[in-house]
Amino acid sequence: MLFALAGLGLVGGVADARPQAPAPVADCQPGGPCSHPLPVRIVIVTLFEIGKDSGDVAGEFQLWKERRHLDVRIPFPQGSHDLYYNPDSQILGVVTGVGNIRSANTTMALGLDPRFDLRHAYFLVAGIAGIDPHHASIGSAAWARFLVDGDLAHEIDAREIPADWKTGYFPRDKKGPNDTSPPKPSGEVFEINPALRDWAYTLTRDVVLPDDPHIAAERARYVGYPMAQRPPFVLTGDNLAALTFWHGAKMTDWAADWVRYWTRGQGMFVTSAMEETGTYQAILGLDRIGRVDKNRFMVLRAGSNYTMPPPGVDAATYLLRENEGYAGLEASVESLYRVGSKVVDELEAHWPKYEKTVPQ
């Protein structure tokens, strides 16, 4: 269904006087002015889709489109993927494209598009992730408070580092990885609304997540990692965004140290992805001009794969195997929908309240 809604409905050929959601008319074209912007209550931010948007193997977007009836297609040439909207629930679905550059571009383009009223919209990032087996299992879903950038750094090839260096990757303002001076953030770390994160976690912590023999068998391989062997569950934990798809025990140690460093010990690395720091920087810019409210931004990531191999398997072998198909992909996209929908349902059911006041 293309983007063609009228501000006045017809019932039996007679004008329906019941209130209807405002909708763009003919002058609402991409990049043009819009006298009747679409009201948006919730933006579902996904990063990629596999194949078609519905009817085949589900990526991050498909379950939301099908189950939330996001049937109105809205052309979005300034982004990576057309938008989809439900005029009844006023939910808007976005596919940003992979990586923080695409996610930042798409988010900024959406926020500046005069066809949408996003002033009271809640943004829910719902994406798959690598998950640290020290803290959770594949299929588990984690609500983040801190978003940490893993790209802004100095790097020396590990084969050329001094003997007393643990890694050749270190913050830009440091003299090396052994420099213990406190962090001076300049785009490396962001804290999103912790009260909203805690509210979302409390609301969803008892949601039953999907499990099956396939992911149970994968979990069983992580001997010595009790959290990795648990059936999928909901937790809180922070996100590291980096454009390089990294893997392995040493890299997982680096990620934990990196998150701990930039959050001054307040954060805990749980999920790895590529987009959040780009998405949120766009949100911050849009908030400064009153287009969105940065306090209505949430990040939910579910583990499609572990960030390191099980005992007895080398990192290269496990990474190449996972690239043929993530062990927890199906479970993770279902977890994202089940957990995220709990929040969406609550916001929808009490919209007059949450439109005015951000939950805490």
Rank of each mutant, 00 (worst) to 15 (best):
D179S: 11
T96A: 07
G31C: 10
V98G: 03
G328N: 01
Y326T: 01
N105Y: 12
F245D: 04
A104G: 14
A4L: 07
G278C: 06
G224P: 01
I289A: 06
W254Q: 11
D88Q: 14
P87W: 11
A256P: 02
P359E: 14
K342I: 07
R260S: 10
R219E: 01
R67W: 14
G150I: 03
A158M: 06
A142I: 03
D314I: 03
G285C: 10
R41P: 05
N100E: 10
A249Q: 09
V234Y: 03
E322C: 01
D238V: 04
A273E: 13
L124D: 08
L38A: 09
T271G: 03
N323K: 09
P30D: 14
G325R: 02
R230P: 00
L110V: 11
H350L: 03
G99I: 08
A141D: 01
F123Q: 05
A142V: 05
T167F: 05
F61K: 01
V125L: 10
A136E: 08
N323A: 04
P232Q: 07
E49D: 14
L124M: 07
Y225D: 00
V125M: 09
V333I: 12
R172N: 13
K184D: 15
D71H: 15
K356D: 08
F245A: 03
F190E: 01
V270G: 07
V343L: 02
R18L: 11
G59A: 15
A109P: 10
L347M: 04
A142L: 09
G127V: 02
L10C: 08
R172W: 12
V95D: 00
P185T: 11
P37G: 05
M1Y: 07
L92V: 08
K356Q: 15
A104Q: 08
K353Q: 15
F233W: 07
R145H: 07
E348L: 08
W246D: 10
V223A: 09
M108Q: 07
G340Q: 05
L10V: 10
V95L: 01
P310K: 00
T357E: 15
S341G: 12
P177V: 04
S54I: 14
N295D: 15
H36A: 12
T317I: 02
S89Q: 13
R102W: 01
P114A: 07
R172P: 06
F146G: 03
I74K: 02
Q78M: 14
S54Q: 08
P162Y: 11
T279F: 07
K342H: 12
H69G: 05
A126Y: 00
P352Y: 10
P19Y: 12
A315M: 06
V72E: 15
I215Q: 00
Y222M: 01
V43M: 04
E322R: 00
A136K: 03
T46Q: 06
M1V: 07
G32W: 05
G127F: 00
R73E: 13
G79I: 07
H120I: 12
A228D: 05
G267K: 07
L38V: 13
P213F: 08
Q266S: 13
N105G: 11
K174A: 13
